[in-house]
């Protein structure tokens, strides 16, 4: 049994003025305890939506979500079932997920049990774990910088001793040293506490460093999944290839990476055939008419591309 398992998940949002948007169009994902799974992809491709579906914050139109063998069903947050306490989400925007009128300390303590004194001790420990001075507990969210708020949100998630944490962009707004610290923290959580982590991030260098496996998402679906290093060295999907090539390098050279050519797709009107075909440098006839499924490749890799099989991977 996997800790967290999403199978062919579909999520629709209503669009203003009628109609709907299929933000996630059939995506699967497995997070085992003690593993770090990176989820990367274009802005707007459905990563946060998938994260919300994973913890039961948006209803799933098709497919299934299971946490430790039990179905995750969307419920109001107040009525969150007991077993889901061990499945935590750290939101993309730490400011909107923290209550502006409560101190950092009291919000971190939300998930804690025990005496007041014991909780206070644990709050200070958690602050230390995420690299915040223990003195911050009496301050309010607006008194923190962006990166500090992010760490408060993580400390709060850790308070309920979760077995899986879904982290939506936890590294954004941290400086390189704080990122390194947090990346090390995530690696330790996975290794020492056997926590399973789903790490959504645009910071590909960090994902590459900490994730055991990576899923690359494009327009609501997985384009490619597999163990991190092989995927990075030899991407099987042209979208992964473009993504990895666009990572700016801190070498002082003043080189501006390429953006993807072509129209940014609208999830309300996905292209026919392969979803990536209008922007793909390797497009050929079949791609325009027939959608490739996520097919297995050697070494536990999967890719949704007609050409992946002929790339000599593995």
């Amino acid at each position: 049994m996997s800790a967290l398992e999403l199978r062919d998940v579909v999520v629709d949002y209503d669009r203003r003025g009628g109609g709907s948007v299929r933000a996630v169009a059939g995506a699967s994902l497995v997070v085992e305890r003690g593993r770090i799974v990176g989820l990367v992809g274009e802005s707007g491709c459905g990563k946060s939506t998938l994260a919300r579906a994973a913890v039961g914050l948006v209803p799933v139109a098709e497919g299934s979500v299971e946490f430790e063998g039990t179905a995750v069903t969307p419920l109001s947050r107040r009525a969150r079932p007991e077993h889901l306490v061990r499945l935590q989400l750290v939101f993309q925007n730490p400011y909107s997920s923290l209550n502006p009128r409560r101190t950092a300390g009291s919000q971190i303590a939300d998930g804690l049990k025990g005496t007041r004194a014991a909780r206070a001790v644990r709050v200070r420990e958690l602050c230390e774990v995420v690299g915040l001075p223990g003195t911050v507990t009496s301050r309010y969210p607006h008194e923190f910088s962006g990166g500090q708020r992010q760490r408060i949100a993580i400390a709060r998630a850790l308070a309920s001793s979760p077995s899986v944490i879904v982290l939506d962009e936890p590294l954004a707004s941290l400086d390189a040293s704080a990122q390194a610290q947090l990346a090390n923290l995530l690696a330790n959580l996975a290794r020492d506490l056997e926590v399973g982590l789903l790490l959504i991030s645009h910071d590909l260098a960090i994902v590459r460093h900490v994730a055991d496996e990576v899923s690359v998402m494009y327009l609501g679906k997985m384009a490619e999944t597999g163990p991190t290093l092989p995927l990075w060295t030899k991407p099987a999907h042209p979208y992964s290839e473009a993504l990895i090539a666009a990572v700016p390098r801190p070498d002082g050279a003043g080189f501006l990476p390429e953006s993807l050519p072509g129209e940014v797709p609208d999830p309300a009107h996905p292209p026919a055939g392969c979803r990536f075909h209008p922007r793909c440098p390797y497009v050929f006839e079949r791609c325009r008419v027939e959608e490739p499924r996520l097919e297995p490749l050697p070494n536990d890799r999967f890719a949704a591309c007609w050409l992946a099989g002929s790339k000599g991977l593995g």
């Binding site: 274009e42 802005s43 962006g146 954004a172 590909l204 993504l243 666009a246 953006s259």
Partner: peptide, 20 residues
């Protein structure tokens, strides 16, 4: 202030090229 932190690297490249 951190205009591209929430963006993937290809969209980020587009914004940087626009500023450029």
């Amino acid at each position: 202030d951190e205009p591209t932190t929430a963006l993937d690297v290809t969209v980020q490249a587009g914004i940087l090229r626009l500023l450029d």
